[in-house]
Write a protein that binds this DNA or RNA. Structure first.
Length: 824
RNA sequence: GCCGAAGUGGCGGAAUGGUAGACGCGACGGUCUCAAAAACCGUUGGGGGCAACCCUGUGCCGGUUCGACUCCGGCCUUCGGCACCA
């Protein structure tokens, strides 16, 4: 591994201590959470894992520090709900079934059993009585229930749409699951297909999702990412007259954010998928247009998205009328226009849009400047002018207006004429939830030849996955072949009907699981409303930043939707959000193919859970992740040895009272308590541990020199163990017992600090001359400004710099014990 | 290309505008040992000086300030996100 180094030997038997206390805590159910506890509540949630089979170091990095924080909050007097469960639906289970003939249910259950044991080895405070498993009907029936509620409200709908199809997963993906034109999971190139699919209307909440005023503390980064993802943009729709073509459609509607440039339109561009393309194309243009549309449909997302690619497009042979100036402009189709955004058609303004400029340049279309850049000489532009500080020209009666003024005036004019209206569009699309797979929540819908699409009646939920499905590598969902599942009767007419065979995206499961923990086995509703009111929203949510725009956005959407169903009275699921970083190995992401995966189990059995926990927390700031190092973890093992020695060393050699180092030790102890508590509040585990190490560095020689009295020593050890308890729960508990304290340390409050006792009596007065440190003088901590300045100026070293010069200024910084002397 | 974050010893990293490098790792020297490991003690940004000390130093260039790792402006690099969104 990274640095060859012999492991430190521990002074104690970590495996025995871990086992001893884990058993005792389980027997005593010390982590059972009581809803009726009178203390203030704190809901601490860590993103639940997918049951992939083993807890890897990344799970530890996500869970050990968050567990430490939950324990910290318990010791601060909160009734802490800290549940755990499994995100148990998903493709790996189904792939295992196809490859190895194991049923997804069995595979998932086995994995969870193994992971539960590994979870226990971490010593977390999870209340396992509240565990949820999303692949069980008792959970997923409520996905179906929410689906029905959304269907009733028009928030769940079926539509034909071009979708992202992953050939390996054999299913469609949500837009959010496509990264750079590739499947987020497999890295496969995504192809586009036109399919009938189910959607959740997340766009109905787009504006509300942009509003983060309901959260208390979220990383700006995540808010920005969501805001960009939603991509709100304000503009105007404007239609162009095509009534002369004799079609049913009289006009082509376009969307623009630059209505001020509408007099510069010299062509229109339709997306290749736009329904009008085929109908307006003239006979002589047809072969070329059809070939272009065909090629566009075959091009992969990657090709089409490439910005390096040369601009392409073809003329349809048809013209449209620009109603503002009566211009007759050619209608083109080009693949840089997306059918899924705006109206699928844009007005081509080459002078003021770079893409239009490139198309016009390539095909010799007119480039007409209508917003004159400041200082423009009337010469042709070398690139599109995108600025908004020009003035209107060649714009009829709007000529001479400042750009911003022109925008407003033209928008008003178009609305008044009925040619278009102001409109807000979003980059975000509705959430495509259909998956052509078995291992997910069946969509509770059936199709009747007579009655059409019918929701499954609520009293017939859950629609359960058939157990006897066959898993073959055909690329078709096993449900599609399962007659027993498919064939049913219509609730409306009693005639034969066919069930929907698609299942839901697994992100549906995680969109409300934080509500289920409050009443995990509730059978008559998704969650107990009174308990949700008691516990939710989640006070502190932690997890990886990779969920910034998927899970977190969906969960916010669901929460607002559930609020609008009247079940809860808040709209944000997570008040505070913290994203931990990633653990690396040799500066690279761990992966099986690289062979650099660090397995925690071996370290846990050799050094104990606590040393692994401490090392992960000490590595660096939690949000930053870090590089796993075998040498680094030894440092923490050594420190645990030192703590062990300090706590267990005999104290009868110490003076019974009035040790000469008592004051210093007491001060250091109070300083440490203050630092550790304020650091843990902000997840600063690394500096909290540094503070405790500094304390132990001071304790060791004081013990050696017998300069601390027994009572002060006992108090210091006691405080150290309490501060350590959230981070290293097993060893702290063991030492708590060995130092004669009553079980359990985890039921104790944290020690309090006293600022007066933490205050230094002496301080180092730093004297700067012209900004450079020239002298350090030991002075009373409460030295007055006058005395500090006097002593500073009297110092010989300072006088070496001031003698013979004029002292123009002397600055005293009270809290810092610093005097800054300025000489000329 | 756009948006965001970050650049500090050999390494991970500390520093409300106020003693840069806490704490840990590693390295070097020592104690113990037949020897080694472990443990313990000491040294450890660079340069100079016998020494007291001095110079220099937080990606680069400038600015504000008595004082800048920290604030401002402009670059460079790295990482993350978005990427034809009209």
């Amino acid at each position: 591994m990274a640095t060859p180094s012999r492991p430190a030997r521990l002074r104690y038997d970590p495996a025995a201590i871990d086992a001893k206390w884990q058993q005792r805590w389980a027997d005593d159910r010390v982590y059972h959470v009581d809803d009726d506890d009178p203390r203030p509540k704190w809901y601490a949630l860590t993103m639940y894992p997918y049951p992939s089979g083993d807890l890897h170091i990344g799970h530890w990095y996500a869970m050990a520090p968050s567990d430490a924080h939950a324990r910290f909050m318990r010791m601060r007097g909160y009734n802490v709900l800290h549940p755990m469960g499994f995100d148990a639906f998903g493709l790996p289970a189904e792939n295992a079934a196809i490859k190895r003939g194991i049923h997804p249910y069995a595979w998932t259950m086995d994995n969870m059993e193994r992971m539960r044991a590994q979870f226990r080895s971490m010593g977390c405070v999870y209340d396992w009585d509240r565990e949820i498993v999303t692949c069980l009907p008792e959970y997923y029936r409520w996905n179906q229930w929410f689906f029905l509620k959304m269907y009733e409200k028009g928030l769940a709908y079926r539509a034909s749409a071009p979708v992202n199809w992953c050939p390996t997963c054999q299913t469609v993906l949500a837009n959010e699951q496509v990264i750079d034109g590739r499947c987020e999971r497999t890295g496969d190139t995504v192809v586009r297909r036109e399919m009938e699919q189910w959607f959740f209307k997340i766009t109905a909440y787009a504006d509300e999702l942009l509003d983060f005023s309901g959260v208390l503390d979220w990383p700006e980064r995540i808010k920005t990412m969501q805001t960009n993802w939603i991509g709100r943009s304000e503009g105007v729709t404007v239609s162009f007259d095509i009534s002369h073509l004799g079609l049913e459609e009289q006009q082509i509607s376009t969307f623009t954010t630059r209505i001020d440039t509408v007099f510069g339109v010299t062509f229109l561009v339709l997306a290749p998928e736009h329904p009008l393309v085929a109908r307006i194309t003239t006979g002589d243009r047809r072969p070329e247009v059809e070939a272009y549309v065909q090629a566009a449909s075959e091009a992969s997302e990657i090709d089409r998205l490439s910005t390096e690619r040369e601009r392409t497009g073809v003329f349809t042979g048809a013209y449209a009328l620009n109603r503002l100036n009566g211009d007759r402009v050619p209608i083109w189709t080009a693949d840089y226009v997306l059918s899924t955004y705006g109206t699928g058609a844009v007005m081509g303004v080459p002078a003021h849009d770079q893409r239009d400029f490139e198309l016009a340049g390539k095909f010799g279309l007119e480039i007409r400047v209508v917003v004159a850049p400041p200082g423009w000489d009337g010469e042709p532009l070398s690139e599109a002018y995108l600025g908004r500080d020009g003035s209107q020209v060649s714009s009829g009666r709007f000529d001479g207006m400042a750009n911003a003024e022109g925008y407003e005036a033209i928008a008003e004019h178009i609305a008044a004429q009925g040619w278009g209206e102001r409109k807000v569009t979003y980059r975000m699309r509705d959430w495509l939830i259909s998956r052509q797979r078995y291992w997910g929540t069946p969509i509770p819908v059936l199709y009747c030849d007579d009655c059409g699409t019918q929701p499954v009646p609520e009293d017939q939920l859950p629609v359960v996955l058939p157990e006897d499905a066959e898993f073959k590598p055909t690329g078709e969902s096993p449900l599609k072949q399962h007659a027993g599942f498919l064939n049913t009767t219509c609730p409306q007419c009693g005639g034969p009907a066919t069930r929907e065979s698609d299942t839901m995206d697994t992100f549906v499961d995680s969109s409300w699981y934080f509500l289920r923990y409050v009443s995990p086995h509730e059978g008559s509703s998704p969650f107990d409303q009174a308990k949700a009111k008691l516990w939710n929203p989640v006070d502190q949510y932690t997890g990886g930043a990779e969920h910034a725009v998927m899970h977190l956005l969906y969960a916010r959407f669901f929460t607002k939707m559930i609020r609008d169903l009247g079940l809860i009275d808040f709209g944000e699921p997570f008040l505070r959000l913290f994203n931990q970083g990633t653990v690396l190995s040799e500066h690279m992401k761990m992966s099986k193919s690289r062979g650099n995966v660090v397995a925690p189990d071996a370290y846990v059995s050799e050094l104990g859970a606590d040393v692994v926990r401490l090392y992960l927390m000490f590595m660096g700031p939690w949000e930053g992740g870090g590089d796993w190092s075998d040498a680094g973890i030894n440092g923490l093992a050594r420190w645990m040895n030192r703590v062990w020695d300090l706590a267990t060393s005999p104290t009868d050699g110490l003076p019974s009272h009035d040790g000469p180092a008592d004051r210093d030790m007491t001060r250091r102890m109070h300083q440490t308590i203050r630092r550790v508590i304020t650091d843990l509040e902000r997840f600063k585990y690394n500096t909290a541990l540094s503070a405790m190490m500094e304390l132990t560095n001071e304790m060791a020689p004081a013990s050696e020199a017998r300069s601390v009295s027994q009572p002060v020593w006992a108090e210091t050890v006691r405080s150290l163990l309490l501060l350590l308890a959230p981070l290293a729960p097993h060893v702290a508990e063991e030492l708590w017992e060995r130092t004669g304290n009553p079980y359990s340390i985890h039921a104790q409050p944290l020690p309090a600090w006293d600022d007066a006792l933490a205050a230094a009596e002496e301080a180092t007065l730093v004297v700067q001359v012209n900004g450079k440190v020239r002298e350090r003088i030991t002075v009373p901590a409460d030295i007055s400004e006058a005395d500090a300045k006097e002593q500073a100026l009297a110092s010989e070293r300072v006088r070496a710099y001031t003698d013979g010069h004029e002292v123009s200024r002397v600055v005293f910084v009270p809290g810092r014990h610093l005097v800054s002397v300025v000489v000329k």
